[in-house]
Design a protein around this nucleic acid. Sequence first.
RNA 1: CGGGAUGUAGCGCAGCCUGGCUAGCGUACCUGCAUGGGGUGCAGGUGGUCGGAGGUUCGAAUCCUCUCAUCCCGACCA
Length: 482
Amino acid sequence: MAKNITPKEKNYSQWYQDVIRAAELADNAPVRGCMVVRPNGYGIWENIQAVFDRAFKETGHVNAYFPLLIPNSFMEKEAQHVEGFAPECAVVTRAGGSELEEPYVIRPTSETVIGYMYSQWVQSWRDLPILINQWCNVMRWEKRPRLFLRTSEFLWQEGHTAHATREEALAETMLMLDVYRRMMQENLALPVIHGEKSMNERFPGADNTFSCEAMMSDGKALQAGTSHFLGQNFAKAFDITYQDKNGKIEYAWTTSWGTSTRMIGAIIMTHSDNDGLVLPPRVAPVKAAIIPISSDEAKLSDSLAPTAMKLSNELNAALGCLGVAVDRQFHMRPGDRFFHHLQRGVPLRIELGEREFDESRVTIVRRDNSKKEQVSFDAAPARVKELLDDIQKNMYDKALAFREQNTRDVSSLDEMKDFFRKNTNGGFARAYFDGSPDDEKDIKDSTGGATIRCMPTEDESRGKCVYTGKEGARRCIFAKAY
RNA sequence: CGGGAUGUAGCGCAGCCUGGCUAGCGUACCUGCAUGGGGUGCAGGUGGUCGGAGGUUCGAAUCCUCUCAUCCCGACCA
């Protein structure tokens, strides 16, 4: 057991922070609520970006960049939007040594500037759809920051699209929700439930919001990605109009969708253990560490290290990435080196020592030391690839099994209260619900914080509402959330 | 922003109540020797204007006021 990490059973928040520190993912910045993303953490983000970016491009989107500063008046054009975001906006009022004529808001999200630009770019039905994504930073002055989950400044991607018809925009909203679900499941090993948000949880300015919800290992829910159907709200606020085939002027229909560095928090809280970080191989910056071991320095530099380099090149070629690194901390004791990689979430360790070398074999060991096997040099690339795929799959299966173990169907309000009272966080409660936003708030108050995370898209069943008793209610996932 | 707590070496802490020699301890770090396949052992050493500002006092880590930051519990959110 790692002595620099508080066990999660003892104090989950402390455990989370300890894992981040031990894995050198991020540090607190000198600015309130901001974080410094360290190389090991940024490497995860780069891998996430790579797989998501590819998926966006495969579905016809292109990248662009819009400015960090937004004229204050833009924010005020959409009533719901300004109401939702005003409390958490940081504003620039001085620049160049004097007071600005109009304050600039540091973007909390870019619907407004992008809407403004779209209004200039769109004239005809032929100009639609516009399918643009941007990777950038945004700032939201949150009350209670937590590394990766909620920081004042965070990195994300925001897609903004404009369409000629309502149907097309709705289809886009659902398409991107599904892209998120797939990417999270396949690459981050996060089983997520995707579905529609309740009115209380809607994005300010959206007609409808959908999300991907994941269960953390303490039973709480985390919203890992959202896709919004904005209707014509922003088109009307920013005058995004086009002339249709009949020559008639129409408002466009828009969508927006985003995922952020919060996904790194989701990965940590879904997979990691009391020894430290556990990373899904597909997004691990280091997928395997080759560790040459010998007490004979000449042997290390003359034969083991060069062989390790050769092996890492072969492995990288086989994996199609640069995820295999040679550990050159030769002066450290083997135990220290193993521990270092363990805490940083490196899925596989390849031990290359005198014992193996003499026999032209390497030892492949899993992070948790659960399996150790010897393979020949020639067989190593294929075997490593196989093992990484296996680990990736097992992580997903394990997370899914955990979610299922902590999900329960509840058919009455008392049962729901009981579910969330018994444990500290409960888990996911599945229940039919057809009440009003105030009814939902009442459930929140009486359960110690459980809210509707989403109404699963794939669940078309109908039943009796736990609150009102009305028949024909949709099924909802209730949970306490981060 | 409300309730609670904490700021002393990179990290974790003691000292504060009851003011007083040169501010300690563990760990990390550096050096040496021995070691070496899941957090090595011994010995020696480097490193602190005690979060910041002001006040009380002959004298402040310690008492008082203000301030900043962090953590926990709420409200808010990707």
